[in-house]
Design a binder for these strands. Structure first.
Lengths: 139, 139
DNA sequence: TAATAAAGATTACATTTGTAAACGAAGGAC
DNA sequence: GTCCTTCGTTTACAAATGTAATCTTTATTA
């Protein structure tokens, strides 16, 4: 039970809108995504339906048009997907990968401050070396 | 030309081995992955073939057994895939997402030091706020 | 050199994903 | 109340992916 499926990139775009608005009708999602993408209405409808099947969205059907609400918090979804990707990286490379992300992301001063203090604390117990695990049995 | 395809998670496991070894025969890859996974030999062979078709691997066929070599550097592949994921996140959330990754990754002291100084430099020009772009046309 | 083992190539098939058209039901306009 | 327009549901279909068996060629060994 509690089928863990994953969200595709296309589905993710739909979720972003609903997360940001808190909830949304199909039309709201469609209007926004037709500006952001080249997708047809029908495509977006399909994505909404798939998100419901995957239990990422639920429709409030008490009124029409239906109002869709997220069943997963944006932060949780981000946590899942980012860590899922990092799980498949060589653990020796993760530090540099994070550096690469920092390079390529806009981050606010206050977030930067948080990251710096987080790193300072982490540093105390950090190992001198992280060993590559690419050839080991585990996955 | 220069078809940009992406590496699936399964394919990524194959590449990790070849990156780590520098190059490898099919048998080497198979031996390692049969320990790490439940995949059958045939499955792993398929993955190797697909990686060749996608131009991530090339086989040196001058001798048998063939020796497979990467056509993309591990760091470049990591760069591609992490940034590709981050591209679809709400830009306001990226700082916290990085914090989450730091929490969940083992990072060596020296990598942490590098990250801290990188952040200190970045801080100078960092904005006070990063605006959410989830509803904007752009993608 | 005939038999066997190993390595590589071909084929297979279900599921997921991208992308969308067509169809049916509800609500609004006349 | 009938007609049109939304909105939601069903169906469609190709490409990618996970997962693997089988066939063929090369190498090894008796």
């Amino acid at each position: 039970m509690a089928e863990i499926q994953n969200m595709t990139k296309a589905e993710w775009q739909v979720m972003r809108i609903i997360w940001t608005l808190g909830q949304a009708t199909g039309k709201e999602v469609i209007d926004i995504l037709e500006k952001k993408t080249t997708w047809k209405t029908a495509t977006i409808k399909t994505l909404i339906i798939r998100l419901q099947k995957k239990n990422f969205l639920v429709a409030d059907e008490s009124n029409r048009p239906y109002v869709y609400k997220p069943l997963i918090a944006e932060n949780d979804a981000i946590h899942e997907s980012v860590n899922d990707l990092f799980d498949s990286l060589c653990c020796m490379k993760k530090g540099k990968a994070i550096g690469d992300l920092i390079d390529n992301s806009d981050i606010s001063k206050s977030d930067i401050d948080d990251l710096i203090s987080q790193l300072q604390i982490k540093r105390e117990k950090a190992p001198d070396e992280v060993e590559c695990d690419c050839l080991e049995a585990s996955l």
